[in-house]
């Protein structure tokens, strides 16, 4: 295992930035976000989780799919410019794990999403383990931990003056090899890694039964959905900050004869998400939509990919204006069904 001194983190980033775009956590007007960084001093460590997740890097909110020129006479279509290499630095283990879920959705199976695929291949994730999870975290309930390595290429375990570097994937190894001068080999230090892995979150375990999705099947008009939905304002907050939500909408932006087709996030909580032609909306009120969100995460996703679509990062809980909490749903459904 290698060691990376805290001091030369910024010079590592500067070195990497010659040929790749660096997305690192920085504080902007009091909010920690994962953003493209050009001045490396701005990188910061004092955050529990960034407002936006690493999903932004690989599945951005607004992505150009193709461009077309003078549609009325001879239509020409241009593919988007090839993506540059990207490195996401300062990601949390739970977000990294979320990327695996997105990989299942976009890459597994017969058809894959070419844009996502290209970005994933050209992207590397460098995670920093969580020193102090806060009251919203419950990643341990989804057999993750503040020190989990799933989904990331390199994991840095912070200690007082240096980071313990653990390579997880080939890409990670290659990266360390290229910048070997910044790293020092200090042999195995399992106790640091384990100290992070067995760290318990404040919220403790929600211990989701494996067959929760079986129980949930067909629970369409359970009164509990009505109870939560009554509080929900219907804003798209929880779905847009959630690293695992992946619904999107495609729209054309026309400028006279030419224009472009773009893909943007969409939220199942919006009023018109399910609006169909002929003004029919299968989920007209907030009850159906709230039910849909939790059923998708705990039932449909599990059935399709055999994993719950939640990593316990706690963003949706922290940001929900009216305190709708997925752990609350899980515990209630566990008891009731």
């Amino acid at each position: 295992m290698n060691k990376l001194l805290r001091s030369n983190v910024s010079c590592l980033l500067k070195k990497l930035s010659e040929h790749t775009e660096i997305y690192a956590s920085t504080e902007e007007d009091g909010v920690c976000i994962l953003a493209k960084l050009d001045n490396y001093e701005e990188w910061t460590m004092n955050y529990v989780r960034t407002a936006n997740s690493v999903k932004d890097v690989f599945f951005p909110q607004n992505e150009e799919i193709m461009k077309y020129k003078d549609a009325s006479s001879d239509l020409k279509i241009e593919a988007p410019k090839p993506f540059k290499e990207r490195i996401a630095f300062g990601v949390r283990p739970c977000d990294a794990a979320a990327m695996l879920l997105l990989d299942d959705v976009f890459l597994k199976g017969e058809f894959y999403d070419s844009y996502y695929k290209e970005r994933r291949e050209k992207g590397t994730i460098i995670t920093i383990a969580c020193e102090k999870p806060d009251q919203h975290c419950f990643c341990t309930s989804f057999d993750l931990s503040p020190g989990a390595t799933e989904g990331s290429d390199i994991v840095l375990y912070p200690t007082e003056d240096f980071f313990l570097v653990v390579e997880v994937t080939e890409k990670g190894k290659k990266l360390i090899k290229d910048n070997a001068e910044l790293f020092e080999d200090i042999g195995a230090k399992p106790e640091i890694v384990d100290s992070y892995k067995n760290m318990r979150t404040v919220l403790g375990d929600v211990c989701i039964p494996n067959d929760l999705n079986e129980k949930l099947k067909g629970e369409f008009d359970n009164s509990y959905w009505k109870k939560i939905a009554r509080r929900c304002l219907g804003c798209g907050n929880c779905t847009f900050v959630c690293p695992t939500c992946h619904c999107f909408a495609v729209c054309d932006v026309a400028r006279g004869c030419d224009g472009k087709r773009a893909r943007t996030w969409d939220s199942c909580k919006f009023q018109d998400f399910f609006l169909m032609a002929g003004d029919h909306n299968p989920r007209p009120t907030q009850i159906e939509r709230t039910r849909q969100r939790f059923m998708h995460k705990l039932n449909y996703f599990k059935e399709k990919y055999d994993k719950y679509q939640c990593i316990g990062c706690g963003r949706c809980v922290e940001k929900c204006p009216v305190g709708v909490h997925i752990a609350d749903v899980i515990t209630h459904m566990k008891e009731e069904l």
Partner: peptide, 16 residues
């Protein structure tokens, strides 16, 4: 523009 760039258009402000 820095503030607005952070906006993820979740419409929470409108719904609240």
């Amino acid at each position: 523009s820095r503030q607005f760039e952070r906006c993820i258009r979740c419409f929470a402000c409108r719904d609240a």
